[in-house]
Amino acid sequence: MNRRPVVRIAAALAFAFVAPAAFAHAQLEKATPAVGATVASASEIRLKFSEGVEPRFSGIALTAEGGAVVPLGQPSVDPADKSVLIVKVGKSLSPGVYTVTWHAVSVDTHHTQGDFQFTVKP
């Protein structure tokens, strides 16, 4: 077997593994309230992404069943963890199913978006 191509590939691979720190698309890893969860109440929404996000270009919207928009505060990031986007819920949530719609711009300007539901139990 000719080993030269293997050596070349291995060398290039080595470069890859020592690549400098990088940023990626911000994917939602965890949420509070949790995705699909049933909770007693929710005074804020916290979204933990796989990467740091830019709060000025990221956002969260909350709608109740029937599409009524729930007022939220300004989104901000956790000072201790820039991958956590936080928004205060502007009012006490009545029982029902709520939809969180989010969009995030990671620090390298890549855009991601998504939505999920949670339920406030009676």
Partner: peptide, 10 residues
């Protein structure tokens, strides 16, 4: 499953 985690259930 990444999609499931972020849209359906954690």
């Amino acid at each position: 499953l990444p999609y499931y985690n972020s849209h359906i259930g954690q």
